[in-house]
Simulated assay, not measured.
Amino acid sequence: MAFGFDCMDRISQFRFEPASGWESAGAVFLLAAGALFTTCKLLNYFRALLSIFVLPGQKLSKFGPTGSWVLVTGGSDGIGKEFSLQLARAGYNILLVSRTASKLDAVADEIKSKTPSAETKVFAMDFSENNDEDYEKLKQLIQDLDISILVNNVGLSHSIPTPFVLTPLDEMENIIAINCFGTLRVTQLVAPGMMQRKRGLILTMGSFGGMLPTPLLATYSGSKAFLQYWSTALGGELEPYGVTVELVQSHLVTSAMSKIRRTSVLIPNPRNFVRSVLSKIGRGSGLSAYAFTSSPYWSHGLMAWAITQIFGPMSKLVLGYNKGMHESIRVRALRKAEREKGKKAT
């Protein structure tokens, strides 16, 4: 009992001192900073939801009247073909630029059959060659055209996910020539006319592979990251001239490049993807962290918001997921190649 009374005596002698003014101010500051941070994140989230699901994009007529021209690179298949068809229906004439003349002619014929009022022109060139003569011919072709919209869609990825040290030199060169030089050189031909007319739209197809460092697609990932910074810088340069620049970030879309045929919640077909792009021009769509950038397809926009605002595009968690996914794809691709090799041998 003596021990118990001794403890009570010690407790009764203890005095709680009030916090000093500096400590109170520090606590208030931390609470205010935390509240401000949380509020900003919530506002950013609701802004993304509004952009993705509610608010419309800018009207195409802002960038040029019907009857003016759209130049689409990589326009013979997939996303590029769909841009051509939908923009022709919107009243624009279409200039298709890609490698294979027969495919370009087929798309031009399809446009004429579905939209007889639209004019079409085709120009076949291989962007991987980075040929000065090709670009000079293209320059001559467009010099008298009122090009209101440029769709930089031409692109190349790796044949299969491949470690960088095993990537063939010609594959690296082709990816850089097509994704980077092709986009830059065509834009440099078209942009001066837009600046002079004080209107225009430059849409460049990006990729989550450029937003997220992607092991086993290192060269492709780097080329798309280059387009992100280039587009943002270009947007700042051309905005005072009334020209809108937008990099379109996307996850997978069913196409020849992705080698995916089946759609899902995260993988739209080209028609739905392009429709979302054209209906959301000027909307950040979940990517407020990047100026002059959008991710307009609804599930891609939500993914982009989560990656940039919660996980972080450079985090080891995201990097590890990306690496594991592409290692799995590589294993399946190599097994398929072995099976096809065996069939040929028999």
Rank of each mutant, 00 (worst) to 15 (best):
P163K: 03
K103W: 15
L203N: 02
Q140D: 15
G200H: 03
S102V: 10
H158Q: 11
Q188V: 11
A108Q: 08
Q143G: 04
R197P: 00
V97E: 05
G182C: 05
L141I: 08
V154M: 07
D105K: 11
L184T: 04
S117N: 04
L104H: 11
C180T: 14
F181C: 15
M205A: 01
I149A: 02
K114R: 04
F127E: 04
F208A: 15
A101I: 10
D170N: 11
V151F: 01
N174K: 14
A118F: 08
T183V: 14
L95G: 09
L145P: 00
H158L: 08
L104T: 04
F181Y: 07
D170Q: 11
L138F: 09
Q140H: 10
D144W: 13
G155V: 05
P192D: 09
M195H: 05
D132W: 06
M194F: 15
Q188Y: 13
S102K: 05
K114A: 09
K103N: 08
I176S: 14
L189E: 08
E173I: 10
M194H: 15
F123C: 12
I175G: 06
A118L: 06
K114I: 01
N179G: 04
N179L: 00
I176E: 06
L201S: 06
N130Q: 03
M172C: 15
L96Q: 03
M205R: 11
T183R: 05
T120A: 02
T120I: 09
E119N: 13
V122D: 01
G209L: 01
L169H: 10
N131Q: 08
N152R: 10
V151Y: 05
R99N: 12
L145V: 09
A124F: 00
D146R: 03
S113C: 04
A177T: 06
N152D: 06
P161M: 05
S102G: 03
A191H: 11
I202M: 02
V107F: 08
L184V: 13
S157W: 11
A101H: 01
C180E: 08
N174A: 07
T162A: 07
E119L: 12
M194Y: 15
I178D: 06
F123H: 10
G206A: 04
